[in-house]
């Protein structure tokens, strides 16, 4: 469904991604693990079109989207739940959802999806007229997910959805990820929480210092080693 090949993205002269290739299969949950600074967020931002790759391709359903404007990528059916949630703090919950549906013009469909979000996330319904900045971290994360779902994405990218949340809330976020996937959404997840990620992933990649160093199903690598490499990086790449 999504094929990233040989992507190089740099900040000035520093290459954050040094030729990354990976694949996300339709209907699956694919995970990208790796230590801080490995380039996970850079990859997400590149796929979403916020960062322009220096070379390489991002093929989605056969079309190359590399370097396209974020709007085109959203319209193609890819939505990103960004790291740190980035909700619009002074807009209400309802307005945040409306912003998520910005590229759509089917008023009835938008209203229907909004109700669907409220059904899936009842806390958001209770707070629909509240400013998003007043929500708790977990509620903001749910809002960020719901905002991305308003795109009706075929592929949902999630960048560290569990970061900074209490363990119970993390459990809930992963339950939501599973639910969304069961309802047919393909998910590409970046996580620091390797333990939780390995429980939901069908396939995972390890990214270290801008390069993919492992690709396989959970269980192909001992969890202890995955965690070691996801947090600290492996010796050979350092």
């Amino acid at each position: 469904m999504l094929e990233v090949s040989d992507i190089v993205t740099s900040y000035g002269k520093i290459e954050a991604l040094k030729g990354v290739s990976l694949e996300v299969e339709p209907g699956k949950i694919t995970c990208l693990l790796g230590p801080n600074g490995a380039g996970k967020t850079t990859l997400m931002m590149t796929v979403a079109g916020i960062l322009k790759p220096r070379r390489g391709s991002v093929r989605f359903e056969g079309r190359d989207l590399a370097g396209q404007a974020p709007r085109r990528i959203v319209e193609a059916g890819i939505a990103l739940v960004p790291e740190n949630r980035l909700v619009f703090p002074n807009m209400t919950v309802a307005e945040n959802l409306a912003a998520g549906a910005f590229t759509r013009s089917d008023g009835a469909g938008i209203a229907e999806d909004m109700e669907r979000m409220y059904a899936r996330f009842p806390r958001l319904k209770e707070r629909s007229t509240q400013a998003a900045g007043t929500l708790s971290g977990g509620e903001q994360q749910m809002l960020a997910v719901a905002r991305a779902l308003m795109v009706r994405p075929k592929l949902l990218l999630m960048d560290e959805p569990s970061v900074g949340l209490a363990p119970l809330v993390v459990e809930e976020i992963f339950r939501i990820i599973r639910d969304l996937n069961r309802d047919g959404t393909t998910i590409f997840l970046v996580e620091q929480n390797a333990h939780m990620a390995l429980q939901v992933a069908h396939h995972f990649y390890l990214l270290e210092l801008g390069k993919v160093t492992f690709s396989g199903a959970p269980g192909q690598l001992a969890e202890a080693e995955v965690i070691q490499r996801a947090y600290l990086g492996s010796k050979k790449t350092q």
Binding site: A48, G49, I50, A69, P70, R71, V74, E75, A79, L80, P82, L86, V87, F88, P89, N90, M91, E95, A99, G100, F102, T103, R147, A148, V151
Partner: peptide
């Protein structure tokens, strides 16, 4: 308002 408050997220919503 989206661009004023959070330009990256605004772009992720497809706002130019």
């Amino acid at each position: 308002r989206a661009v004023a408050q959070q330009p990256v997220a605004a772009q992720l919503c497809g706002i130019s």
